[in-house]
Every structure is written in structure tokens, then in C-alpha cells.
């Protein structure tokens, strides 16, 4: 009777250590004790096999990451804006809505076109002074009348 109780206690003790044994987080002496017990106890071996099978099944979903929906970020900021009655995340600058790179490209294009227009204009304000054609005499110039 006392032997049975001691045996049950031993099994319970060992079973409680099986997860740590499997995870490799037991001290050397305890690891050896569990190993020795498993070698001679069919019931505990069966319990350990069940644990192994459970963890093997979980391996299948361990590496599989469920990606968040891409619209999550906007939904969160919109909810904060709404719940804060417009106090937060209300004013959106142009830079928040349009990517910075795109803004730079547009700015450079506008700059280029403006420079081109100024260069080819009749006054040619961007051209060097020396390259200006001398105005033809009398062309558009009116002599002051006495």
C-alpha cells in the first residue's frame, strides 16, 4: 500500500518534469533521473510520447505567421482620430498623404520647366548678359519729342 503511494508520487514527480526535460531546461542530475525513470517506466514513456506528439503538431503553426491586414494602420489612426473627437491625427500635411520621393520628383520637374521657360522667353532673364542679342536700332524705341 505504502509502496503504491510512493510509486504514484514518483510518477507524478517525473511527469511534472517532462516538459522541462523535453525543453532541455533541467539540471544535469534531474535530467539523468528522468532519463533513468523513463527507461524503466512504460506509463511515463507513453506520457512523454504524447507530449512529443503535441509539440510536433504545434511545430506546424509555429513558423506560420498570420500577417495583419494592410489597412490595419489606417483603421487604428482613424479610430484614434474619431474617439479623440478630432484632437489627434486630424490635420494631415501633404507629406503624410503623398510619398516624399514623389513630392521631390514633382518639385524638380516644376523647377526644370520654370527654368526652361525663363531661358527661352523673349527677355531671356536666365541667359548670360553677353549672349543677349542687341536690340535693333529704332525697333520699338521711340525718340522723345521736344
Amino acid at each position: 500500500m505504502a509502496d503504491d503511494a510512493a510509486q504514484t508520487e514518483l510518477h507524478e514527480d517525473i511527469v511534472a518534469l517532462l516538459s522541462d526535460f523535453r525543453d532541455g531546461s533541467l539540471a544535469e542530475s534531474e535530467r539523468e533521473r528522468v532519463k533513468g525513470h523513463l527507461a524503466g517506466c512504460e506509463a511515463c514513456r507513453a506520457e512523454f510520447a504524447e507530449l512529443e506528439a503535441t509539440l510536433a503538431a504545434l511545430e506546424g503553426i509555429k513558423g506560420k505567421k498570420e500577417g495583419a491586414p494592410p489597412e490595419l494602420t489606417s483603421k487604428v489612426t482613424e479610430t484614434i482620430h474619431r474617439r479623440s473627437a478630432g484632437r489627434f491625427f486630424g490635420r494631415r500635411t501633404l507629406g503624410d498623404r503623398v510619398p516624399f520621393g514623389l513630392l521631390m520628383i514633382v518639385a524638380l520637374l516644376v523647377l526644370g520647366v520654370t527654368a526652361g521657360l525663363l531661358w527661352s522667353s523673349s527677355t531671356g532673364s536666365l541667359r548670360a548678359r553677353g549672349s543677349h542679342a542687341a536690340p535693333a536700332s529704332g525697333s520699338g524705341q521711340v525718340a522723345p519729342t521736344p
Binding site: K65, E66, A68, P69, L72, K75
Partner: peptide
């Protein structure tokens, strides 16, 4: 967001609930 969503999905087992809770987490 992926890390949070993955955890909420594994805990709740439902994408709609997981998304809702993930939003609440960030709020």
C-alpha cells in the same frame, strides 16, 4: 502589426476578432 496580429489570431482563432483586438492594442 504582424507580430501583434499573429498573437491575437493564435489566442482567439478568428481573424475578425483578432483584427479588432489588434486595433484595440495599438489604441
Amino acid at each position: 502589426r504582424d507580430k501583434v496580429f499573429n498573437l491575437t489570431y493564435r489566442m482567439l482563432g478568428n481573424r475578425a476578432e483578432a483584427e479588432d483586438v489588434a486595433q484595440e492594442v495599438f489604441i
